[in-house]
Design a protein around this nucleic acid. Structure first.
Lengths: 160, 160
DNA sequence: ATAACCTGGATATTCATTGTCCGCTTTATA
DNA sequence: TATAAAGCGGACAATGAATATCCAGGTTAT
């Protein structure tokens, strides 16, 4: 039981895209390189973010990706949902139904309600904070110099 | 990101063992059959429950498994921990460290704190209820007849 | 002594995740 | 208008964790 690495990667990709000036885009290849992840695979994750309306893509020369929403409007949960999808953390395998030989209408799982409640509690934390919250955290003093380097890199790699 | 099926299986195994009279044990083979799962694999899960001090095993002829704790003292979280272990739901892959070229002492992940909080919220629900709570749920009227059948099966398969 | 059970290690299988590849469309620019 | 650079989507391969099997040991009742 472990969260996909794509969620973390996507969050940082969004923080990168947030450094872009208006109208500019960043090619997927560049993003992948900066994150240090497989570019062909990360393109697939980027498309999931596009499908979830978190970012937009521009095809063609001078194409790339940019934010569709402001980071204040992107909850961590939105990123999780875009990458991992709707599947629940727990799903019954129906053991009890077999053990008690329950008919269709009586089918149940003693754990489902509790697990659902636990999952809701988990999600509620991810729904509480947005990516903007992380951007603020990144403004810590000890990072300022490093951040400037990163912003310079973005200016170098961005197009239009 | 999905919980192992072994957690659900283990919970129902514990409920089965709870039907045993004092001193009696139930062979692992019988348990697996009742749950409808691979017996050789489930033996491994049973040993995890033994390591976690939730159940005890008796080797030799007339051997088997029985509860070590009362189900009132077994939290759902205990079962989860026994099967899935201590690993956290989220662990940083250190992307930010690479992006900002942070030295050892500055290493950090913006997501870690939030994810830890979410996980704690999730765990707190699993820590709240015990297996006894599930046993009560199972007492629902519509199950009474089926439960008697199950208890008869336990009496048939138990030893000593 | 034997049979029935648990134990622990080595190993195989399965499956979701991760990663690659290719042909396609779109668009800036020469 | 041709070319190059980018995203799109599907087919496919590699990886690794979860699941499953097997076997050579221990233990204990009969």
């Amino acid at each position: 039981m472990h969260m996909k690495t794509g969620v973390e990667q996507s969050v940082y990709a969004i923080l990168l895209l947030n450094m872009l000036p208006e109208k500019a885009v960043l090619p997927g290849e560049a993003i992948s390189q900066q994150l240090g992840v497989s570019s062909t695979y990360f393109q697939k994750l980027l498309r999931k973010l596009v499908s979830a309306d978190l970012i937009t893509s521009v095809p063609g020369t001078k194409g790339g990706f940019k934010l569709k929403k402001r980071i204040e409007d992107i909850r961590i949960y939105d990123v999780y949902l875009a990458i991992e999808g709707q599947q629940t953390l727990y799903s019954s395998s129906g053991i009890l139904n077999d053990m008690l030989e329950l008919c269709e209408e009586d089918r149940c799982c003693l754990l489902s309600d509790l697990m659902q409640e636990a999952e809701d509690a988990w999600k509620s934390v991810l729904k509480r904070e947005t990516v903007a919250y992380l951007a603020e955290e990144m403004q810590a003093d000890r990072f300022t110099h490093k951040l400037e380097t990163l912003q310079a890199w973005v200016k170098d790699k961005m197009v239009v």
